[in-house]
Design a protein around this nucleic acid. Sequence first.
DNA 1: CCGGAAATAT
DNA 2: TATATTTCCG
Length: 231
Amino acid sequence: MMDHELWPSGGLRVLVIDNNSSYLSVMEELLIKCSYKVTTYKNVREAMSFIYGNQRIVDLIICDAFFPTEDSLLILKEVTSKFDIPTVIMSSNGDTRTVMKYITNGASDFLIKPLRIEELKNIWQHVFRKQIGAEHRNYNDAQHVDQLSYRTMGITKVTATLDSEIRENNGTVTDIRDLKKSRLSWTMQLHRQFIAAVNFLGVDKAVPKKILEVMKVKHLTREQVASHLQG
DNA sequence: CCGGAAATAT
DNA sequence: TATATTTCCG
């Protein structure tokens, strides 16, 4: 893996939007523990106003799905098309249709409440991914198209994987049986957990055996972790 | 068990 | 062909 993926999230400015003020506080506390700079908003209109006035200093947006209205979808479309700020959607509802709706509309990630600090520690990677990698963009576009066509056809390999993976335990992969057809697929989520484990151990002490212990993923082998460490 | 690298699969 | 994952080796 590349060194920059192990860098701390330090100082990235995150805007959080959630209509539940108590959860907003929880999010703020968690994000500050991860050393992000946090701004919170309870309603979409004010948040949008802030974004328009401060687009240059908002690195990442985390927005609640605001069930049952479509407010977050509007923010998503506006923000991703106009400012290209990576946006993470969070929701207590993780059904396939909902997840797909946001992913296909440009969401960088979809996290299920309650969020764990381990998940927030690694969302800075979305900022990085947005800024670099036109090559990645091509890959994502290809997969994006796949997901759209798959959705039309109904349940598919892609949606099924996304679904089972995210639904598992609040977005944490605990078993890779679903993720491997003939060989293991390192999904974004599984990779995040890998990165989190490496960060937790420290780059120098992060050896396959220890990483495996920290990740706590059933059926994941030391060899698979070792191999991933190479890439 | 570890890291590196050849062999394979996608 | 290039990349991702598995298998082999010292």
